[in-house]
Design a protein around this nucleic acid. Structure first.
Length: 555
RNA sequence: GCGCCAGUAGCUCAGUAGGAUAGAGCAACGGCCUUCUAAGCCGUGUGUCAGGGGUUCGAAUCCCUUCUGGCGCGCCA
């Protein structure tokens, strides 16, 4: 444990002791003490940390908050040597100013730990499965998958950094209606190569990629399927095309910086007893009934609007059933402590249903966390680009990373909260100009590396207490925030915290760079500043690693 | 109709478990390189936090309600 979290814990402990001491000495009345909160004030003139405990105690103690604050402030310095002073301000805040020595110690720690700095270690690491993108293999990955990929991959990295055992997983929807439709579409396009009037199914996939796959099969294998049974033709073309599509998805995702630990096929659930087992479990728990020849889940018993079909009249399980079996596999059979899914917001209706089915299966629904992300609106020439999957007009992940650097795409997709509708400006992203925040951050890193290349100083212990400039102090404070940012990003399932932190850190570094010259006649000052530059490089690079964005040596 | 997400500066968005005077970037204007990367820094101003109630020492943040936008409510996935 290092950084700001450790310091905050120390201050909270001291505050607790101070309150108890005052109660013991009868200077404050004896009441139940709420959990003590600590925060960093926005304005630096209010000190390093701020406590609001006096305001919270005002009511139960029936005293003025400022009076309580004064008593606590007088006691607290005696319980924690790092506290330089404790002031009272405003309605009753206790503002804590620390001895800056903690910042110098933190700087030393960063430089000692390097790549390992900020990584948390848990006594009992929990296991987490992060599932993201998870597209249908019936077509190429699109721009929405690109956002989900960036969010999920970074989220997984954050948990890794926070000390969890992480599995990155892709759920391949290679079963069900859409795959059958895929086969029918391929078959029709294949037949049209020989007879242009051959009918195409109304609800078929109209994308050009389908025609290309049919052509590719003909070019490789000739016209032998022309006279085959329809079923056989569909099956053969489907298997052929799925293999190609899945391999392309894998390649595109790797290019995008995403490497999965597990590719999980939905078809394995159908081909094993997994679905049968989950249906039996739900039935044994009394959560199902038969109606109209289908098997239903009593979702209305679990706070849902309506019941849901598990097995259709024709005996084929629905997507929902497969998904329940899949999550049973994750949480029970493979035993992950937590399953996190990144889904498009258009699937939000499915979240509660799935959780309730898990509950009916005897699993705590809180062990499933779904991160919903809003749709991406693609902008070109200042106008929204209308996309229609039905007509085959989509912008693919491959198109995107052919135009935009992977670094820019991953950073921009994580720059906003997942909950915000996002405008992705193609022109801006292609421009790769300084309007793009990722270049600002990478430039800071390149600058750091450049300084370290140009200036060398003998290895020795410098007196870091000469780092007193306003920009130096706030940069050191920002560096110490790293592990707290990881903790909060993990707590809130919010990867956008890390891009914001990276941007903020870059700003603090640039300000320092402009205010303080590293190269210096004062040997100690130069050495101390080099330590700060080196530490900034380490933390910035560690942050970029979590984001899966490169940290360039020069630009 | 019911449900989920959102509404903050001209635009794109932050706002840290309710905290002190609501902030960045872009756009506009002015300053800073004979010295470590000017893809940078510093300064100048902008708000009915969608509207209305409530909760309390304190609300952009929590609750209720109205309005606006996006999405969902299939024996599709």
């Amino acid at each position: 444990m290092s950084g700001k979290i450790a310091i905050e814990k120390k201050i909270i402990a001291a505050a607790k002791l101070a309150v108890n001491q005052a109660i013991k000495q009868n200077t404050l009345p004896s009441v139940i003490i709420p959990e003590i909160e600590i925060e960093v004030p926005k304005d630096e003139k209010f000190g390093d940390f701020s406590l609001n405990i006096a305001m919270q105690l005002a009511k139960p103690m029936q005293k003025k908050p400022r009076d309580i604050a004064e008593i606590i402030a007088n006691e607290i310095t005696g319980f924690e040597p790092l506290i330089e002073k404790a002031d009272i301000a405003g309605p009753g805040f206790i503002n804590i100013t620390l001895d800056p020595i903690w910042l110098y110690e933190e700087l030393t720690r960063i430089n000692e730990l390097g790549n390992e700095y900020g990584k948390l270690t848990l006594e009992k690491p929990k296991s987490i499965n992060v599932e993201y993108v998870s597209g249908n293999p019936t077509g190429p990955l699109h721009i929405g998958n690109a956002r989900g990929g960036a969010i999920g991959d970074v989220l997984a990295n954050i948990y890794q950094c926070a000390g969890w055992n992480v599995t990155k997983e892709f759920y391949l929807n290679d079963a069900g209606n859409q795959v059958i439709k895929f086969g029918e579409s391929l078959s029709a396009r294949y037949m049209q190569l020989f007879d242009p009037s051959y009918p195409f199914p109304d609800d078929g996939y109209k994308g050009v990629d389908i025609s290309r796959l049919a052509e590719a099969y003909r070019d490789e294998n000739g016209d032998s399927l022309k006279d085959a049974q329809k079923n056989e033709r569909e099956k053969t073309l489907m298997d052929y095309a799925l293999t190609i599509n899945i391999s392309n998805m894998r390649k595109d995702l790797e290019k995008y910086g995403i490497i999965y630990d597990v590719w999980f096929s939905e078809s394995t659930l159908h081909n094993s007893d997994a679905i049968k087992d989950i249906v039996k479990l739900l039935s044994d728990n009394g959560a199902t009934y038969e109606k109209d020849g289908a098997l239903w889940f009593r979702a209305t018993d679990y706070d849902c609007e309506k019941d849901e079909v598990l097995l259709r009249t024709n005996g084929i399980p629905t997507y929902y059933t497969a998904d329940i079996a899949y999550h049973y596999n994750k949480l029970v059979i493979r035993g992950f402590d937590l399953a996190v899914n990144v889904w498009g917001a258009d699937h939000h209706g499915h979240v509660h249903r799935l959780k309730m089915a898990l509950k009916a299966a005897g699993i705590n629904p809180d062990r499933l966390k779904v991160v919903l992300m809003q749709m991406v609106c693609l902008m070109r020439d200042g106008e929204p680009v209308r996309l229609s999957k039905r007509n085959g007009e989509i912008v693919t992940l491959r198109d995107l990373i052919d135009d935009v650097s992977v670094d820019a795409a991953r950073f921009i997709f994580n720059y906003n909260n997942a909950t915000t509708h996002m405008n992705f400006d193609m022109d801006l992203a292609v421009k790769e100009s300084n309007e793009n925040p990722v270049f600002y951050v990478q430039y800071a890193h390149a600058r750091i590396r450049s300084i370290l290349r140009n200036i060398t100083a003998p290895q020795k212990d410098y007196d870091l207490s000469v780092l007193t400039d306003k920009t130096e102090v706030s940069l050191m404070k920002k560096l110490a925030d790293f592990s707290k940012e990881i903790t909060l990003a993990a707590r809130d399932f919010d990867p956008s915290r890390m891009t914001k932190y990276a941007y903020d850190l870059a700003t603090h570094f640039h300000s320092f760079y402009n205010a303080c010259r590293v190269k210096n006649d004062d040997e100690n000052l130069m050495g101390a500043r080099l330590s700060l530059v080196r530490a900034s490089g380490i933390v910035l690079k560690n942050t970029l690693n979590v984001l899966g964005v490169s940290a360039p040596e020069q630009m």
